[in-house]
Design a protein around this nucleic acid. Structure first.
Length: 937
DNA sequence: GTACTCACG
DNA sequence: GACGTACGTGAGTACG
């Protein structure tokens, strides 16, 4: 029985949506153990499908089968009648993420899975049933839905799978009082409260059947309504004729649903044991996996170490992940005609994966070398634009390689596509590509980013580089860039890579990105992080790109003068140190320093680290200095200067862009698992401020002539969040009243009236407050405060006693992490904690990280929200946002507008939690301004 | 490439 | 009872 559907064929059509709802409501809520994903309905669905398969293996087995689903909640019926199904409850939150999984389940069973936008499952069933009977076959609809009963007869019957009861013409007549062909007439009159079909008021199924049997059909009835004897009934039918006719349209199934497959595609297929068991194992259905493995005669896979957000590509035969990668399939686009084909395909699709190749990693300085595109898994192209021949000409400059489109022409063609609001541009780390293209006059939008999707779903589980994601989710190792560029001193730039090789590498990147996006996009919802991705990751890309491109002006002369001063002081210190040591050695070598201190000079307290070297950290040297030793004290001074000089006054000069005269950092959106950003090349989030000497480096960060730098920072944001999350009334009240929070803590803890507060007591309370945020331990606090451990523990005990909510929060957070494998911020960001149940010292680390993550992460979310809202607020003002330092934003503003901008930004920052979250504590923002960062802060 | 140290929030 | 700890980062230097 292969090939054409025809006489003797038997088509089974399963009402998938009915299965899902029955499974959902019949079963207790069940969640996947590893990540808490609700899977009860999926489990029930799989059981029902399995039972169906077992029950229908006999002599009357179907030759063709499909599971038919509803797709979306809007159908053509809503266009006819906006109240259609309007009184339905919203889909339960627990069910929503399971919907796509039921599709995966169906495919895992190797059963055709059918759905169509704008049509209900019932319409598709009607269409397929009609096609099948027209071809001479038989049809069984696995459903008990009365709306499908109009299809019964002429070779179509229904089967109530739960009651295992056939529904034929007789059963339909028993239910509706008319034959299947008149069921819609009865439904049109009787209406349906479930689907919100109006019908004729006061007329139910019984009366409707009576009327239809009297008059033959609905149209005749309505035409001859005057003849009805009962006055009330007569009046109703005449008055509501339009409503009744509309009702008939609504209940009539559309047997002409356009479908892009044929009955032949629905032929029964044997399940693929690996795919099916893989899916079941991924869902962590232990019993069902075993049972089905038994019936398939296969070995059940091990369950337990599956990756929660990870897909099992083998479970989905059609998944992009499953198609092999074929570098030969990639196209090299060398002229306008070929490029136009790809642009047309992208426009038709509505999306395109984009990747740029450049001569370097600095988006502000590198040159564009080529662009790759992909619109379909396995199909991608590379457009070489600036590859060199590799042979220098007379002047040492390489000639452009043959067979490339002029760069300007390609960009002119691509620009409308890349800027088209109707075409989604998908990338991996799109901020990079957007910045490069912006320098060529192309403003890429809108964008999706696979790196950010992975970050939203999997922060804490693994990295989010393309290599990591491809290996993990596509089971494909991409071509290493090193294999093209080499490494070290002999490394070449991408423009010197032969075009043939470049095509394979570059097009593959676009291919991978597209496949990842198709895999990840539906998973976002399932992992409940769509809002996180849509509000705090994706919209940040253009905001950060703008900030990075603006950069901040750094005065080279100031840095240079400071470098010289540091060098002189260091030389003097170095001489002094050598003198004290009695020999010359490398002060910058911790190893040599340790030997001088603890071996040669015989100082006490030498502790060796893992590698056997003495520890010479600042804390160790400070202890020694406190004992009156001069050498470690000098080394501390030397180290501070050395750090300031090498990391800041020297290195920062190298980062001044020669074209702009400014320093352009790069923010890594996925840089910290908590949701914080990180800053690189250079890191502008760790410019010194704590020491007087270091703080002066901020004087080199200046505003342009006529402008000022504006700094706005959240005051105590993490403690405020702690007060809210842990519900500490005393802390909340203190924040509401604008009290000195550390002094208040000290007063509460040590029974000292606020009036008698000393700086020392306040300092200790401050250390404890910070300790709490970090997941306090007696050891850590003791070390920080340099007090005995027992005393530190006493402080902590007292703190917990005075603020009992803190301990509850800590315990509850750790318990949550253990149960779910992640913790959450107030805005729904998830931070995975895979080590939370580790044994040994790692358990302590993981616990403290889990306690800290929701606090640090919520603060990070809040400033992200503020940053996303700011550009439109600043649009009409002479102001640019330049930097973010975790709880601080730096702006460059025309002097005259400084106060106005400051207040506008403050309003956005202070209101950034709303309306998503209502904090029980106010957010307070401090502002400052000045000619340089030192003054503004 | 790894360890150490230290700058920031 | 011992273990070995404050949370989150990036960068420069020494050293094998």
């Amino acid at each position: 029985m292969s090939g054409n559907f025809g006489k003797g064929c038997h088509l089974h059509l399963i009402d998938g949506s009915a299965f899902i709802f029955r499974a959902f409501h019949a079963l207790p809520p069940l969640t996947r153990k590893s990540d808490g994903l609700p899977v009860g309905a999926v489990s029930g669905f799989c059981n029902m499908i399995h039972k169906y398969v077992e029950d229908n293996a006999g002599p009357d087995a179907p030759t063709h089968v499909a599971v038919v689903f509803d797709k979306g909640s809007h159908t053509f019926r809503n266009d006819l009648y906006d109240q259609y199904k309007a009184n339905r409850d919203a889909m339960p939150e627990d069910l929503r993420p399971q919907i796509p999984l039921t599709r995966e389940a169906t495919r895992a069973f190797n059963i055709a899975c059918v759905e169509k936008e704008n049509y209900e499952a019932d319409d598709i069933i009607a269409t397929l049933a009609r096609q099948a009977t027209a071809a001479g076959g038989r049809v069984t609809i696995i459903s008990s839905d009365k709306d499908l009963m109009q299809l019964v007869g002429n070779g179509v019957e229904m089967l109530d799978a739960m009651k295992n009861k056939r529904i034929g013409v007789e059963e339909v007549e028993a239910k509706f009082g008319v034959g299947p062909d008149r069921v819609i007439d009865v439904q049109a009159l009787a209406g349906d409260s479930v689907d919100n079909i109006p019908g004729a008021p006061g007329i139910g199924v019984k009366t409707a059947a009576l009327l239809i049997n009297d008059f033959g059909d609905l149209e005749t009835l309505l035409d001859r309504a005057e003849e009805i004897k009962q006055p009330k009934r007569r009046q109703t039918l005449i008055e509501h004729r339009a409503q009744i006719e509309l009702s008939k349209k609504l209940v009539t199934l559309d047997a002409d649903t356009p479908l892009d497959f044929t009955l032949d595609d629905l032929e029964v297929r044997e399940p693929d044991a690996d795919a099916l068991l893989g899916f079941l194992a991924q869902m962590e259905f232990r019993t069902l996996t075993k049972r089905i493995a038994d019936s398939l005669g296969a070995e059940p896979p091990v369950i337990g170490d599956t990756n929660p957000a990870g897909a099992n590509p083998s479970a989905e035969p059609d998944a992009p992940a499953n198609q092999p990668f074929d570098p030969e399939a990639y196209e090299c686009v060398r002229d306008a005609q070929a490029l136009q084909v790809w642009i047309d395909r992208a426009n038709a699709r509505g999306w395109v994966a984009v990747d740029t190749e450049t001569t370097g990693l600095d988006e502000m300085r590198c040159d564009l070398v080529g662009i790759s595109l992909s619109v379909e898994p396995g199909q991608a192209c590379y457009i070489p634009l600036a590859h060199k021949t590799g042979e220098g000409d007379l002047f040492g400059a390489d000639a452009l390689a043959e067979g490339q489109m002029p760069l300007e022409q390609a960009l002119e063609m691509l620009k409308p596509l890349l800027q088209d609001p109707a075409v989604m541009k998908i990338g991996q780390n799109m901020k990079y590509d957007a910045k490069v293209l912006a320098r060529y006059g192309v403003q890429v939008a809108p964008i999706d980013d696979t790196m950010l999707m992975s970050y939203a779903m999997n922060a804490g589980l693994h990295g989010h580089s393309m290599d990591t994601l491809s290996e993990r989710y596509l089971e494909h190792d991409p071509i290493p860039i090193k294999s093209l560029l080499g490494s070290g001193k002999s490394a070449i730039t991408f423009d010197r890579v032969p075009i043939d090789e470049a095509v394979k590498y570059a097009a593959e990147d676009a291919d991978i990105t597209l496949r990842l996006a198709q895999l990840f996009k539906p998973q976002l919802h399932r992992a409940r992080v769509t809002t996180v991705y849509e509000t705090m990751e994706r919209p940040l890309v253009p905001v950060l790109a703008q900030m990075e491109m603006h950069g901040i002006k750094v005065d080279r002369d100031t840095l240079s003068r400071m470098s010289n001063a540091f060098a002189q002081k260091m030389a003097a210190l170095e001489a002094e140190i050598h003198e004290l040591a009695g020999e010359t050695f490398n002060v910058g070598s911790p190893k040599q320093l340790g030997e001088i201190l603890f071996d040669k000079m015989g100082l006490e307290g030498g502790k060796r680290g893992k590698t056997g070297a003495y520890a010479t950290g600042a804390d160790v040297l400070e202890d020694l200095a406190a004992e009156g030793h001069d050498l470690p004290a000098r080394v501390l001074d030397w180290r501070q200067l050395s750090k300031l000089k090498s990391t800041y006054t020297d290195a920062l000069q190298d980062h001044i862009n020669p074209d702009t005269g400014r320093v352009h950092t790069s923010y890594v959106i996925t840089g910290a698992i908590t949701g914080r950003l990180s800053s690189t090349d250079p890191n502008l989030q760790n410019i010194p401020v704590r020491s007087e000497e270091g703080r002066r480096i901020r004087e080199a960060f200046v505003a342009e002539e006529g402008k000022v730098l504006l700094s706005l920072d959240y005051s105590q944001i993490e403690l405020r969040i702690l007060a809210h999350i842990a519900r500490i009334d005393a802390l909340k009240e203190a924040f509401r009243q604008g009290q000195d929070i550390h002094a208040m803590t000290a007063s509460e803890m040590f029974d000292v009236p606020m009036a008698d507060m000393t700086p020392e007591i306040r300092r200790q309370a401050k250390a404890i407050n910070f300790g709490v945020i970090y997941g306090i331990s007696g050891f850590g606090l003791a070390r920080n405060l340099r007090i005995p451990r027992s005393e530190a523990q006493g402080f902590i005990d007292r703190y917990f006693e005075r603020f009992p909510g803190i301990k509850d929060y800590m315990d509850a957070t750790v318990a949550f992490a253990k149960e779910h494998g992640y913790v959450q911020t107030l805005f729904g960001r998830r931070i995975h904690t895979p080590e939370i149940s580790a044994k040994g010292p790692r358990a302590g680390f993981a616990k403290r990280a889990a306690i800290n993550a929701p606090i640090q992460g919520t603060a990070a979310d809040i400033i992200r929200r503020a940053m996303v809202r700011l550009p439109p607020v600043l649009a009409g003002l002479p102001a640019k946002m330049l930097l973010q330092v975790h709880d601080e934003l730096i702006f460059e503003v025309e002097e005259a507008a400084a106060d106005e901008v400051s207040e506008a930004v403050r309003a956005v920052m202070e209101g950034a939690a709303s309306p998503a979250v209502h904090l029980d504590v106010p957010l307070v923002v401090d502002a400052g301004q000045g000619a340089n960062w030192a003054q503004a802060h």
